[in-house]
Amino acid sequence: MRPKNGLEPAPPLRLVDVSKRYDSGGGGVVVALSHVDFAVARGEVVAVVGPSGSGKSTMLNVLGLLDEPTSGRVELDGKPTTGLTEAQRTDARRESLGFVFQEFHLLPTLTALENVRLPTAFLPGDATDRARDLLERMGLGDRLDHTPDELSGGQKQRVAIARALINEPSVLLADEPTGNLDRETGRNILEEFRRITDEDDVGVVAVTHDDLVTEYADRTVELVDGVIRRG
């Protein structure tokens, strides 16, 4: 439904004319991103593909406020993030973004429930009920007290997704989310992404080498030498 003022809401996450350059030493410069315009909408899955060294990881880091562009701007809900202090960037990530990694990055000594609650450790309130609900939605209601070494790869990735959703982000950023999974488990994880976009109205950006991810995406963006070729 179009808002009453007739204006479309700003996308939750957008890059506007973003370039990222690195000093390669000896006076050389590496251009990782070149004048990239990109946005993800709520409820949308976008796959970002391209060869190794094409700038996909740099783009994900810039989207995730883990790295600042050399030029251009990153916008969260229509507001530029330029000039934010490191503490403000951390707060913005916690409030608006969730991260899912190929290697899961679960703490081995914590249970599934404790891993999901971890991002809320220094926030007011008790997130136990929400963490439990998220794990139950992921089909892990009987694995709450299991540590990562007691879980399969697909179960670990579901725990990681639940952890990424604990603070109710508007966008989920996924780095090779099916990279360590077999084909069937990868499909199950991608179906979870589709369910998340449908039920929670979350946008998903998945950087990947896996063509399977593009089957579940609403849109595919190709990066070549730091330039968007399509999408």
Rank of each mutant, 00 (worst) to 15 (best):
T128V: 13
A164W: 01
D133L: 15
L135W: 03
Q157E: 11
L173Q: 02
E150S: 10
R130E: 06
H146N: 14
R163E: 02
T128G: 11
Q157W: 11
D133C: 14
L151G: 00
V159M: 05
A160I: 03
S152D: 06
G139S: 06
I166K: 08
S152T: 12
P169T: 07
Q155A: 11
A164G: 08
P177I: 06
D126Q: 02
T178C: 04
R158E: 08
L181R: 07
A174K: 00
L173G: 02
L165M: 15
G139I: 12
L173D: 01
D182C: 08
Q157K: 07
L134T: 06
I161Y: 08
A174L: 02
D126Y: 03
L140K: 06
Q155P: 09
R132M: 10
S152C: 02
D133N: 15
D145K: 15
S170R: 15
R158N: 07
V171S: 02
D145E: 15
P169A: 04
R132V: 11
A160E: 01
G153M: 07
D133F: 13
D145I: 10
G154W: 04
M138W: 03
G141R: 06
L144V: 13
D126M: 04
T178F: 02
K156G: 00
G153S: 11
A162P: 05
G139P: 04
G139C: 05
D182W: 10
N180Y: 08
A162Q: 05
D126S: 06
S152L: 03
L151C: 04
G153N: 09
R132P: 07
G154S: 03
D149F: 08
L181I: 10
P169R: 02
G141F: 06
L134Q: 05
Q157G: 07
G154A: 04
G141I: 09
T128E: 15
N180V: 09
K156V: 05
E150W: 08
N167H: 12
N167L: 13
S152W: 11
D142F: 12
D129F: 12
D182L: 09
I166M: 12
V171F: 01
S152Y: 07
T178H: 01
D175S: 01
T147I: 14
D145W: 13
L173T: 03
D182P: 00
L144S: 14
N180M: 10
P148C: 03
Q157A: 10
D182E: 05
R163I: 00
D182I: 02
R137K: 15
E168P: 10
L172S: 00
L172F: 03
D149A: 08
